[in-house]
């Protein structure tokens, strides 16, 4: 079949991928106070990328994210490890988190928490592992 026959799926995917990614971002930042967090946000982002891979092909996903997903997993684990290690420099036990209130230019008074950075590590690790599994299964050769 000509590629143009997937026109419905491809055009809707262009819109839906952004909705899903935005919702994943929302879940990622809302994880402290309500349901959400790095794990489910990572799974949702991987789902958006999978939808892109279904509507177009795997090459498109590789072009959208031009990194090796195994490296993204490693980067996530490294970030999680570093947030744990950072507490050691302040004489606190490993993985002790800190938070504080800051005046941000656009957001006003905001609570910033090092657990968010840990969550970013979880997020990257989940995206990397899920996409590695999916692309490894999905690819030929």
């Amino acid at each position: 079949m000509p590629r143009g026959s997937d026109i419905f799926l491809q055009n809707i995917s262009k819109i839906v991928v952004f909705i899903v990614l935005a919702f994943a971002l929302y879940l990622f930042f809302t994880g402290h106070g309500s349901p959400g967090g790095g794990f489910i946000a990572g799974l949702m982002s991987a789902g958006a990328l999978l939808l892109l891979a279904l509507a177009y092909d795997i090459e498109t996903v590789r072009k959208v994210i031009p990194f090796d997903f195994k490296l993204i997993t490693a980067l996530g684990l490294l970030i999680a490890l570093c947030t744990g290690t950072g507490a050691l420099f302040f004489g606190e036990p490993f993985l002790k988190h800190a938070f504080g209130y800051f005046q941000l230019p656009l957001l006003g008074k905001t609570e910033l928490h090092t657990a968010l950075i840990f969550d970013l590590g979880v997020y990257l690790a989940v995206v990397g592992v899920t996409m590695t599994i999916l692309l490894t299964i999905g690819e030929d050769s």
């Binding site: 419905f8 799926l9 809707i12 819109i15 839906v16 909705i19």
Partner: peptide
């Protein structure tokens, strides 16, 4: 989301 995806 449902309005977009269900017909497709």
């Amino acid at each position: 989301f449902v309005f977009l995806t269900s017909p497709v």
